[in-house]
Design a protein around this nucleic acid. Structure first.
Lengths: 221, 221
DNA sequence: TTTTAACGCATTGTCTACAATCTACAAGCG
DNA sequence: CGCTTGTAGATTGTAGACAATGCGTTAAAA
């Protein structure tokens, strides 16, 4: 039985609804402030309200939606302060993860990160913006994973979700394609050199500038 | 109308169930690995399964329980690694919060913390272990709140919950009453002096030693 | 005109019944 | 005897109906 059949995943309606709604929020399809009426959602997805409600409770504790009793659930609004908090926490979590990675992977296992950056640079040169963004996410996700800190990872996922949402909502005029990719090179160098302080500095500034650019002209609806 | 009547809170059954279950888990009444059968919970609380299920979904995304589809929900087990992760993240979050507080409250608004520590010392001298623990929680909670970082606060709440659970599960032979309370004094001094590095060092060691003591002889059932 | 009370509508909250799925054990077949 | 397959019981997953609550509107009274 070495047949490599694809795993059949029997996801519950709740999970499917959850994934669908979460993706819609993170992609900006569902905009902050928008009302999420259980009946409507159930009808649109062709299911009953029960699994929808459970999905909404999960989204609520993930901080993506807000529920007022007997009034309704809405996509959580994002203030300028929220943006600043998201990015400051992202810096905190990622620099910590990187510190751990540097300690553990003494110049060795960083090949995984190197591969991602290489592909990112290629994609940047080719002008493939989507690929650059995907690989950028991969890079930071790999960084967290490599720390081997599960709780840190779960916390980071929450922040990363909000980052995705913010990126989707802002009028992306980011443009500088190859620049973003190549910015990761000195970071990797510092990591391989085991220079934790320098690496933290670079990563911190890297994320902070990205956050500042977005927070700068953030307009709340 | 300056009557200070207690707010009447009409909490939904879901919220009441959630609070009850969460409290039971954090207090150690519901032990790790224990099965949480929806029907049983519903019967015991005198409600239907629907609100119970929603509460369980929330507890799941808070990381307090684990659900296997069509199999059941159990209180999440805590490994030694979990303990270490919990305390390392606690250090990360609290030292960051403290750094922010030191920057903002230049020697001024630290009175709130000072009050808590004073009362903690008194309770310690009086041998009131319960009060010391409550005030210790107050202290660290106040520290986070004073950072004014809401996202940080919500993340910290998750970690703090797990800390509570761990503390409740371990065979507390902690004893050294007054010592715990007085340990906060040099921390406050450093904060008031604006010595961020020193304060971080003290707080870090403070939490780390507490965590090590527990992780040291953690036995998994 | 202003205030207040009552009502209707929309939405969420809860309950009950039924369907889908899992585990374990027993029956059938080589 | 060993393996596969079917069946039973328990538990979770879903659906639909009903109850509770909040808000806006309307109508009545001061």
């Amino acid at each position: 039985m070495d047949l490599a059949l694809p795993q059949i995943k029997n996801l519950s309606i709740r999970e499917q609804s959850l994934d669908t709604l979460r993706e819609a929020i993170l992609s900006g399809e569902l905009k902050p402030g928008q009302a999420l009426k259980e009946t409507d959602l159930a009808r649109h997805l062709g299911v009953s309200r029960a699994p929808i409600r459970e999905a909404l409770r999960i989204l609520n504790s993930e901080g993506l939606v807000e529920t007022i009793p007997y009034h309704g659930t809405t996509v959580r609004r994002l203030t300028k302060t929220d943006i600043e908090e998201i990015y400051s926490l992202r810096i905190l979590l990622e620099t910590y993860a990187m510190e751990q990675v540097i300690e553990k992977c003494q110049g060795a296992d960083l090949q995984r990160l190197r591969d991602i950056v290489d592909r990112m640079v290629s994609a940047g040169d080719a002008g493939d913006l989507i690929a650059v963004n995907a690989l950028d996410r991969d890079f930071h996700d790999a960084l967290i994973e490599m720390s081997g800190h599960q709780l840190l990872h779960s916390m980071w996922l929450m922040v990363a979700m909000k980052v995705r949402q913010v990126m989707a909502l802002v009028n992306r005029r980011n443009t500088d394609l190859t620049l973003i990719a190549r910015k990761h090179l000195p970071l990797l160098d510092a990591m391989e050199a085991g220079d934790s302080a320098e690496a933290k500095m670079i990563l911190g500034r890297h994320i902070a500038t990205a956050g500042d650019l977005i927070a700068e002209d953030w307009v709340e609806p």
